[in-house]
Simulated assay, not measured.
Amino acid sequence: MSTYAAISDLSFLLVEPSDTQRKIITKALDDAGIKQIEHSSTIEETIRSLASFPPDLIISSMYLPDGSANDLIDQIRNNKKTEHQCFMLISSERNREHLEHLRQSGVLAILPKPFSQKDLKRAIHATLDLIVEEDIDLELFDPGTLRVLVTDDSRLARKHVSKTLNTMGIKAIEFAENGKEAIVLLKKMEFDLIVTDYNMPEMDGRELTEAVRLDPALAHIPILMVSSNSEDSKLSNIAQEGVDAICGKPFEPSVVRDLLAKILN
């Protein structure tokens, strides 16, 4: 794993078919300290570029001449060589349904057009957090022995959460696709933390939290809830019912690090 001395060491690939938008975003990246920026305008070009020179971060527009960012992220995540590629969207798209697939696919950030320099820098730092491994500082646990159960019906989301936890030194991770599967694992194995999605089939995050809190053998386990609707009023009710922390999607490393430090310490 490479260690970066500065943001200027990062390499970016900007996928943007509009000349005007390309110039605007490139200037903003340059102002943020990014000097290594390659360009492409289609999915085909991007995939070809990834095979030769994989960047630290792909920044993509939503709509491209040969498809959408959803199509691009699928090709990237379904290739073993690129499945952990850091990805960010900059788009004027506001429709939640159109953006949901990207949120579930483990993008680092979704920035609106026009975006603020502050939000861009935050996304760049999230990239750095994923590239540079640094064990989370916990008073009561050794990150290397921390046992975590990640519960999410999205395979891509499970991979992204796992990758984020790995960069913090957390390696002992088990997976469940829904609350029912999680309960089976919780009965068989011991865990120090549960990270669960909110929306899942069979048994959702709220029902899983309730089942854990009502079981004397499991009630002590901290729960981090992850949702793409983290402002939802339903989630504030869940927080009162026993969730220790709520985190939004995209799953930002620095935010997760702070939340875990609070609930595990």
Rank of each mutant, 00 (worst) to 15 (best):
F53W: 15
I183N: 05
G144W: 12
N265D: 11
K187F: 06
R96E: 14
T209P: 00
A261W: 08
K234S: 13
I136V: 07
M225K: 06
N95M: 05
I25E: 13
D215V: 03
A6L: 11
V212D: 00
N78Q: 15
E133C: 03
R147W: 11
K113L: 15
F115L: 07
E210C: 03
A217Q: 09
S162G: 11
K180L: 15
Q117H: 09
T82A: 00
E38R: 05
A239Y: 10
G33P: 12
H160Y: 05
H84A: 14
L165H: 03
C247V: 15
P253W: 03
E241V: 01
V255C: 01
Y4I: 12
V184E: 15
Q117N: 12
M88P: 07
A172K: 10
T82N: 04
L64P: 00
A69R: 01
L72T: 04
A51L: 10
V15M: 06
L13Y: 05
Q85D: 12
D137V: 10
A219K: 13
K171E: 13
L29F: 14
V184S: 10
D31T: 14
L156M: 06
E177P: 02
S254W: 11
Y198G: 02
N178I: 07
A28M: 11
S162F: 04
I25W: 04
M200P: 02
R22Q: 11
T3K: 06
F141M: 05
E93C: 04
N78T: 15
S61Q: 07
N166L: 05
S52R: 05
K80C: 15
D129N: 07
V150E: 09
R206G: 02
V195P: 06
L13T: 05
T26G: 12
K23E: 15
K180Q: 11
